[in-house]
């Protein structure tokens, strides 16, 4: 059963069409990976879901149409967003970043959960977010969104630019999160995808090129080479 149903999603930016009718579903549990080479429209799809780009077609979340809703309303329906550039407010402290994200009826239990997942956020609460390392900023971006009552997380390239050790930490935390909240994960690191995502959707130049079990996709070297531009020999080993 699907939580998010995207049908014939089309987005144009600055006069050129980026998405030409994307159709796929996100399951109500576990991780769904959104894959593809650079520039095929993965981030555009994420931003269209959040209402950050004007789009046509249909995006139904739990039966409700999202297209036309302002971003804050989409977020209030319970869609948490961790953008590609992390979206951390660098001039604000770690604690302020978290305070901004917390809903009105803040629950200390949510803070406990986040601090258990990312203890570093507690230690650095008073530090300005701009001075954090890349990995710590990623943890802040994920951690603050977890303070909200999410029904779906959209996470865009969480391990990008991180050292293998930190990337593994972040991936581990996300896997933990996925036990309670479904995740739509955009990711280039196929090692991470393999360990996390049950299902995968592959985009190619603004269209869905493949849908199915992640295991089957990664086991098919022709498909991975053609759609993802990697040979499974060196790309998928982790």
């Amino acid at each position: 059963m699907s939580l998010l149903e995207i049908a014939d999603l089309r987005v144009s930016l600055g006069g050129s069409a980026i998405l030409h009718g994307v159709t796929f579903d996100v399951a109500a549990s576990g991780v769904t990976a959104l894959l593809g080479r650079n520039g095929v429209g993965k981030t555009t799809t994420a931003k269209a879901i959040l209402g950050l780009y004007a789009s046509a077609g249909s995006i139904r979340f739990d039966g409700r149409e999202l297209i036309g809703l302002p971003t804050y309303a989409v977020a209030r329906l319970g869609i948490g967003y961790v953008p590609e550039d992390r979206g951390v407010f660098s001039a604000l402290t770690v604690a302020e970043n978290m305070r901004l994200a917390e809903p009105r009826d803040r629950a200390t239990a949510a803070y406990d959960y986040v601090y258990e997942l990312f203890p570093v956020l507690k230690h650095r609460a008073a530090q300005s977010a701009g001075t954090l390392s890349g990995g710590e900023q990623q943890m802040l971006a994920i951690g603050r969104i977890l303070l909200r009552p999410n029904r779906l997380l959209v996470v865009d390239e969480p391990t990008k630019g991180l050292s293998p050790k930190v990337a593994a930490e972040v991936a581990h935390a996300l896997k933990e999160v996925a036990r309670t909240v479904p995740i739509l994960l955009i990711e280039q690191n196929l090692g991470v995808v393999r360990t996390m995502a049950g299902r995968s959707v592959v985009l190619d130049t603004g269209r869905v090129a493949h849908r199915g079990e992640t295991r089957d996709l990664l086991a098919n070297p022709v498909l991975t080479n053609q759609l993802l531009g990697v040979s499974t020999a060196n790309g998928v080993s982790s």
């Binding site: 302002p70 971003t71 804050y72 209030r76 979206g87 901004l100 603050r144």
Partner: peptide
């Protein structure tokens, strides 16, 4: 204040503030 927090964050990245469920 929270309003001040929203303004300071909005100066940096308005989109992200709205993505946190805040009506800028």
């Amino acid at each position: 204040t929270r309003a001040g927090l929203i303004v300071r964050a909005g100066v940096e990245d308005r989109e992200m503030v709205t993505a946190l469920g805040i009506d800028v």
